[in-house]
Design a protein around this nucleic acid. Structure first.
Lengths: 243, 243
DNA sequence: CTTGTTTTTTGAACACGTTCAAGGAGGCAG
DNA sequence: CTGCCTCCTTGAACGTGTTCAAAAAACAAG
């Protein structure tokens, strides 16, 4: 039994993991230790960068032994994931009210994306570490993988809410897939932003200014009755691609 | 002077590096050793996977000491890059005649992409190793970085040739940027293909079937006189994004 | 309190990518 | 042949992420 407890428990089933993204924590003392390790890691990542920070540095900064970090986090990357999960939790509080503030679809999408970018701002370059491994859907920490399903769905739900009663309205047959497509669009923007070294990431702003408008316009155009066929074709491609 | 020779030499300037992607090789004997190491690496990567193969394995398989690999390749990933460079060289022979075989723009694009995919086929999962680090434009091996400029340009030139005298024709103001956009499209397809585990990567075929047609149609539509404004807008976004 | 159990902590040990000082190997000048 | 130079090769050593057996601490039951 002790052996089984040592093994990381299944994630998908436990709601709490959406919040903490951590290995089991039973006591308040342990929770505090976990937090201290995570904070030490983030602080060092921010100052020196991800690759330049060693697990030994982190442990020392947190005042624990080297192995302690691995009691709470499965890997160095999972420390970054824990940061991501932390902000995701925050987003679930902040974003929904922003979406209901307006009916303008473009403004809603913009609000969702802007909020997330602002959350990541202090650790912009850090997330590269996540992308590096997460691009492989087979990796546990991939945003496309199974284990991150809850977080991904929560994120897609922002967009699901955004297309309800929006101006312009979204054609019924797009309602099911559009949220996921918008989420994908957001991932692309975030990726671009991570490597955007222009002052204040102004190139990302330009990209957003240009493309959000375009996306909305496209939805608008595809709503015209004559466009039913094109819409069906696009959706057919999408279906074929998602096995 | 011996010290300076030890340092990796600048790459962009030397044409030979487009072929070999290797540290200096002076004698035929050395060239053969380099080849033996690369072949050993590729064989092991193919059998066991990239992460599961150690540099010690590779050296042993090639019959040299551990450090020898680092005399010819700067890193484990550069072994993959050498494979990529090898196929790129091959592509420069094979692709141009394919492009002139037809004037149909869709067929031309398809031929370029199909050829590359076929070249990578035996080592499909291997290229993940390149993507993992190459996604960061700051890394030497990034396809977006400076050091890979020659290879990238050679690749873009395939598309530059493809839009000359094509059916449908490409509007003049797109001629400068379209090749790069098509190259980007190709990178996206390859990325998708790398992780496409469907039998024979049939999902990638479906994606190609659907989107190439779409791309051509889009170029066609954007050629209409009334679309001049939209075209200008898209190009303006592109300019803003490329600092 | 004592004893048994679970949770947390420790630090040495391991495997791997990478570096480097040292030493051949082969040629070339004197 | 001797000394010297460049190219190539070696394998030990280093730093790092990660694992693990064992100890300590916290807790539960009697």
């Amino acid at each position: 039994m002790a052996r089984a407890a040592r093994t990381p428990v299944g994630r998908a089933a436990r709601a709490a993991d959406l919040v903490t993204y951590s290995l089991r924590v039973a006591t308040a003392k342990a929770e505090e230790t976990r937090e201290r390790i995570l904070d030490a890691a983030l602080s060092l990542f921010r100052d020196r960068g991800f690759d330049e920070t060693t697990m030994r540095d982190i442990a020392a900064e947190a005042g624990v032994a080297t192995g302690a970090a691995y009691y709470y986090f499965r890997s160095k990357e999972e420390l970054v994931m824990a940061f991501y999960a932390r902000t995701a939790e925050e987003a679930r509080e902040v974003i929904p009210p922003l979406v209901t503030r307006s009916h303008d679809l473009g403004k809603r999408i913009r609000a969702i994306i802007d909020t997330q970018l602002k959350q990541f701002e202090k650790h912009r370059r850090l997330m590269v570490a996540l992308v590096r491994i997460g691009i492989d859907p087979k990796h546990p920490l991939s945003p496309f993988g199974e284990e991150t399903g809850d977080m991904r769905n929560a994120s897609i739900d922002f967009f699901r809410a955004a297309i309800v009663d929006s101006k312009p309205p979204v054609p019924k047959d797009l309602v099911a897939d559009l949220p996921r497509l918008l989420w994908l669009y957001q991932m692309g923007i975030i990726l671009f932003w991570m490597f955007d070294e222009s002052r204040g990431q102004r190139r990302t702003r330009a990209l957003l200014d240009g493309t959000i408008d375009l996306v909305v316009r496209l939805i608008q155009i595809s709503s015209l009755p004559m466009m039913g066929r094109l819409r069906k074709r696009l959706l057919a491609i999408l279906r074929a691609v998602e096995e």
